[in-house]
Nucleic acid binder design. Sequence first.
DNA 1: TTGTAGGCGTTATCAC
DNA 2: GTGATAACGCCTACAA
Lengths: 345, 345
Amino acid sequence: MKRPTQVDVAKLAGVSRATVSLVINGQADGKVAISEETRLRVLKAVDDLGYEPDIRAQALRSGDTKTIGLIIIDMANPHYWEHADGIEQEARAQGFNVLLFTLSLDREYVNRIFRDLAGRRIDGLILSGGILSESRDAKKALANIHKYRLPVVELSDRFPDYELDCLVSDYRLATAEVINHLISLGHQRIGMVYGVASPALALDRLEPYRECLRHAGLPADESLIAYCGPTIDDGYQAALQLIKSPSRPTAIIAINDLLAIGVLRAASDCGLHVPADLSIVGFDDICLANFLTPRLTTASKKIISVGRDAIRMILDRIQNPDLAYRVIYAPARLIIRESTGPAPV
Amino acid sequence: MKRPTQVDVAKLAGVSRATVSLVINGQADGKVAISEETRLRVLKAVDDLGYEPDIRAQALRSGDTKTIGLIIIDMANPHYWEHADGIEQEARAQGFNVLLFTLSLDREYVNRIFRDLAGRRIDGLILSGGILSESRDAKKALANIHKYRLPVVELSDRFPDYELDCLVSDYRLATAEVINHLISLGHQRIGMVYGVASPALALDRLEPYRECLRHAGLPADESLIAYCGPTIDDGYQAALQLIKSPSRPTAIIAINDLLAIGVLRAASDCGLHVPADLSIVGFDDICLANFLTPRLTTASKKIISVGRDAIRMILDRIQNPDLAYRVIYAPARLIIRESTGPAPV
DNA sequence: TTGTAGGCGTTATCAC
DNA sequence: GTGATAACGCCTACAA
């Protein structure tokens, strides 16, 4: 039992294949070159056979797949899922599907995805920052992007030092705001939990952190920074280390809300009250942040619609490969809630 | 500037198209019917031109797309991303890609996805429970699945009352355990926050809840059940309602951890201490559950690997459409942590 | 060992 | 209005 093709429909309706094709997608065409009678006959045959056009053949013929790839760098972080959700919805609205790729630790996988792009399984690719800059074959990938004019959009937390369409949303200003906020509350020793899935990520938080502290004449020694992995438990362990250190900070900045949850837990385990004994700040304003106890002070990018901008950018690029590369910048803002308070005396 | 095809490679290497094809994917074939010299020449031409086989054409020729669809019913719930993560990873391991579909409120969208399946954009479809049973066109969808032998696997919280491959993991036993646990702690009034994205979901928690209470001779009036939507805020509002009711429950069961976070927040806002004043239970054991304050008592399905089983099931079905339908069942178990304690006196 | 021919299902271009 | 015919790019017998 094979599935029906256009030929079968044509045979059943007693017309030629071309007629079938015209009936099915001749709507857009100005002149309806088909008699109502045959039209209905064809439609009936389509229905009787349960005929469905083969998308693969359409893709081969028309040249595009109406599918874009999306690489999510860390599936465990709600922040990225909010991205994925927005992108998928907007893509759908524009008649596109989304092929989802997760990056575990498998860097080689990136190359396969680029091959999918070159092989026209997907029309374009949206990727989180830290992939192109970190991949061992980054230069080759970039060269290919330019050589074949592959439609690629990067979501990044810093301005790219290469030619590419980029949606940059960084926390530089927000980090400065955070530090000022903490300083104004009397904090002197401010720690950082720095846990990333990919090396170059979140420098938009680390660098201003160092700068601002130095600028304010506060200690910024390395012992205040706990480097770790991207999971909650990593954040938990890192915070324990910070809290138990001889010169415990009175405030801890986690580079994202997920890690901040681990920090909250660590504080609780050490008998510290937040924010009375320890202030905690996160980033991303994930949907849970406002429901934690205490509600998390954090920074939000939500002023922008990642999905809409990313999809618009990639579609523009697909339509016109020769467009000049663009960078769209969107800042974030600080949201003060309950996890930060005056430094303990 | 068009991208190179097999013909271009053949021309450059001075051989025929078939030779190129053989060189490229003749590895598996036992007999290497190509001379080393031409092989290298072809390979060089491939490299020079940056030739990449067109996957669309391959798909059309070979009949499959090496892609499976995945419908996620609620992107905002961590539990479902854990599914998605597992499925994507396992799919990749098996050489398949995952096309991601989100279900907002757009029921009509399901039909489009089924058309994608029929149109061979995807080889198979994995869907969360509550889609097939609730869609207005559910019967039609099921009929199509059977008629065309579409490979579909459903992830469900109850045994299907229709013929389909199903990965069932329910909380019936776990819910009974939860109730017994609470009763043994002296709780008499046990409330429930029931918030779902799709009507028939989570009956595996609602029904045993009612039964067990009745069986234990405890009140099970409707005023103890707060129906709401699936977001944290919904859970928060529902819990407020429960807490402020004249006969406030001493324990609240949320049908998942996400809602439980809202309940925790509501308790906190009402000045209730958990678990001293109010015990709270969730379901799913999302990765955050063990890091909340207090750590959440919940039930876990993690004993099974959803990804592996789902992918195996769908691949089996794709390979052999005539297979008898299977249901794989996996129970869950209760995890007692800190959010449940003795009932207040 | 290599080349030739046919077909996958669709759409576009021409004649009729 | 409708019906052949030729691509799209690839794969696979089969023939040379």
